[in-house]
Simulated assay, not measured.
Amino acid sequence: MKAEILGALLLDLYRAARELPLAEFQRGALDRLREVLPFDAAWWGMSRPDLDLHSSYPYNLPPTFVNVWTQHRHGDDLATTVIANPGVTVHFDSQAMFNSTGLRELLMAFDIQQALCTLVRNPALNLVTFLSLYRFSGRTLFSAAERHFKQLVMPHLWAAWTANWVAQLASARVHRASSQVAFAITDQQGTLHDAEPRFADLLRREWPGWQGPELPAELRAGLDGGRPVEREHVVAQLYPVRGLFLAELRARSALESLSPRELVIAEHFGRGESYKQVAAALRIAPATVRAHLRAIYFKLGIADKTGLTRILDRRDETASPITPPGQPPADQRRLSR
Rank of each mutant, 00 (worst) to 15 (best):
K2V: 01
A3L: 15
D12E: 09
Y14E: 11
Y14K: 08
R15E: 09
A16D: 12
L20C: 15
P21Y: 04
L22F: 07
F25Y: 10
L30T: 04
R32E: 00
S47D: 15
D50N: 09
L51F: 12
S56P: 00
P62C: 11
P62I: 12
P63I: 13
W69P: 03
H72I: 08
A79D: 09
I83E: 03
I83H: 03
G87M: 07
V88Y: 02
V88G: 06
T89W: 08
D93C: 14
F98T: 15
F98V: 14
F98S: 14
T101M: 15
G102R: 05
L106V: 11
L107Q: 11
F110D: 12
I112W: 03
Q113C: 03
Q113E: 15
L119D: 02
R121H: 08
N122W: 11
L125I: 08
S132A: 10
Y134T: 05
Y134V: 00
L141G: 10
A144I: 09
A145W: 02
E146S: 13
R147C: 06
K150N: 12
Q151M: 03
Q151E: 15
M154H: 12
P155R: 15
H156G: 02
S171Q: 07
V174L: 06
H175C: 05
Q180V: 05
V181W: 01
D194V: 06
D194W: 05
R198E: 01
D201A: 15
L202D: 04
W207F: 14
P213I: 02
R220L: 00
D224G: 06
G225N: 02
G226Q: 11
P228E: 06
V229C: 02
V235H: 13
V235C: 15
Y239K: 06
P240Q: 13
V241W: 08
R250L: 14
A251F: 09
L258A: 05
E267Q: 10
G272C: 05
T288P: 01
V289T: 03
V289K: 02
H292A: 13
R294C: 03
A295G: 06
A295Q: 04
K299C: 12
K305G: 02
A319G: 11
P321G: 10
Q332N: 12
